[in-house]
Design a protein around this nucleic acid. Structure first.
Lengths: 344, 344
DNA sequence: CTGAAAGCGCTAACAG
DNA sequence: CTGTTAGCGCTTTCAG
């Protein structure tokens, strides 16, 4: 078919193994023959065959990405493209390629992963989410296959390298920010309950209320998919309460947009009649009217660090387990106001 | 290492080739031995090694995706995630995996492609864009490597299978829609000039004006990156003109959002003082305030059809060249109004 | 410093 | 219907 190592070897009058060593830049080959071999490679337009190399060396230079099973939802969220951009950059630096799972149900994705792993298609895997009772995580762990989790693992946290934000603290700070503005009826609109991230943000919220001596009102706590529509529904429910909240902590941008749009439609002014803090800050918060005060969790870095960590693990099999906490920060915009101004 | 075909063969007391045939479900193998072999596979927990298979069969079941060189911009745009979702679904149906280019400059991406192709990593490639003077497209064509383009190829259109919208017509219709509302000062805010899509949309716009006997005013035509910020700049320039337009055709959603936000800031009301038609309709148009009338180009289908077409080419090497036109439609929302209402 | 040879795990003629 | 035998293109001992 194409030009192989043998062709090069013949032209340079060396053995194929020598050519292989030149490619690997093996120091035991003399400069002279290296030059000669390289010339031959150029002359023939030789390009190494990765598949053959993979088979022989048992490594592919490919990283597998696993999306959550609610991938349809995930795709819509700007979180996805941003984290992917970070992954892409991290992988590119070390010449790794990225391969994605394409399944939609948990079972399909599980099969994707088995194919990637047992089929020898990838050297390592990055889970772009962390949730409870994850069959896939368990599978990877049982096989001791190299992988990294974006988010805090629900189990075996100490044994799994992961990249995460301090979601608990971020959420607590956001809540305290609202409390400091005088709010005492603060609602929590969270995402999928099975995501560890959601659980932690809820805890941070509750802890902040507790510390401030405020009650935790179950009716103020909502959970749903990270979707525009879900945000809309959530806020409608809250407004029907006897004493609706005066402030909202929304743990996802897309939901936040849904919330804001719905409020606008219902002529509840933000921030005059409702303060909002959003999460993620993947540029939707800026885009919303009014622009949303938001916790920036540096999504790009989550991806970038995850890629880098995994590659380090691959390069050095006894690399210690790591936890990388990407910093967050509250970005103040104009969606929050002092509670005084609300009382009419 | 892991369990191989030989282990299975031994346990089932057959030759390795027989096992291979069972995997391929070769009809020439008796049901009896098939069953026996399958039992052995299950008992051992055998899973085929894709890399080995790829090397032997010279096919990988992987599709390479090539993003445009302005990938940072591309990642932000909802076009990306939507088309990727379509690609993912199309690939999954036929058990193909997706691998992405990770380079950022044209040269890096070119290298990614060479690696994918000459390295034997992928069976075919999908270009997620179409632009002028594309080195990568030329490379693929010269090597006669199977590939599909999303968008209309700038050259060799007749020889390259591609999936596209009728951008010319879509744009003409959108412009006519505005003309029918009585507008005669219509501006065109387009994206990157090197994209074929942009060129076609511009032509459609111009043709509509011409047919209606309206002049083509160069000052009304703007081009820029598909970015929020660019949309903002474009509209500011337009408002400074002696006779600003009364209607805008914006060929990208993200830009459209930038335009709307800027107009709001400048207290130019939409649609009262400015009508807007946007493109793509990947749910940003719905999200904007006011909601934007938009040409829905069915981005998901672009991806889905591209994946399906490429796979067909791979399955049947003499599959004829195809052009697939995904239909578009104008979705009326509330960002346009009759020109009468503008005159104060 | 370089060559010969074995083998990574699977497929695909070619026999029988 | 099934086994034997070569590879696919590269890496990697093991010699020398």
């Amino acid at each position: 078919m194409a030009i192989t190592i043998k062709d090069v070897a013949k032209l340079a009058s060396v053995a194929p193994s020598t050519v292989s060593r030149v490619i690997a830049n093996n120091p035991r080959i003399s400069e002279k023959t290296k030059v000669r071999v390289r010339e031959a490679m150029v002359e023939l337009g030789y390009h190494p065959n990765f598949i053959a190399r993979s088979l022989a060396s048992q490594s592919t230079q490919v990283i597998g990405l696993v999306l959550p099973n609610s991938s349809d939802v995930f795709f819509q969220n700007p979180f996805f493209s941003t984290v992917l951009r970070g992954l892409s950059e991290g992988a590119h630096e070390k010449q790794y390629a990225l391969q994605m799972s394409t399944g939609k149900t948990e079972e399909q994705i599980y099969q994707d992963v088995v194919n990637m792993v047992q089929g020898g298609r990838v050297d390592g895997i990055i889970l772009l989410y962390s949730r409870t009772d994850d069959k896939i995580l368990k599978y990877l762990r049982d096989r001791e296959f190299p992988f990294v989790v974006i988010g805090r693992p629900y189990e075996w946290e100490e044994e799994i390298t992961h990249v995460d934000n301090d979601n608990y603290r971020a959420s607590r700070e956001a809540t305290e920010y609202l409390i400091n503005l005088g709010h005492n009826k603060i609602s929590f609109i969270g995402g999928n309950k099975n995501l560890v991230m959601t659980m932690e943000r809820l805890q941070g919220y509750q802890e902040a209320l507790k510390s401030a001596g405020l009650p935790i009102v179950p009716d103020y706590i909502r959970h749903d998919e990270f979707l525009l529509e879900r945000g809309q529904e959530a806020i409608q429910g809250l407004l029907l309460l006897e004493t609706p909240p005066t402030a909202l902590l929304v743990t996802d941008e897309l939901m936040a947009i849904g919330v804001v749009n719905t409020l606008t439609k219902l002529e509840v002014e933000v921030p005059a009649n409702m303060s909002i803090v959003s999460f993620n800050n993947a540029f939707f918060s800026e885009l919303a009217r009014p622009q949303l005060t938001s916790i920036d969790i540096n999504i790009f870095d989550l991806g970038y660090q995850a890629a880098k960590s995994l590659i380090q693990m691959l390069l050095n099999p006894k690399e210690p387990v790591k936890r990388i906490i990407v910093p967050h920060q509250l970005i103040e915009r104009v969606s929050c106001t002092n509670v005084q101004s609300i009382k009419k």
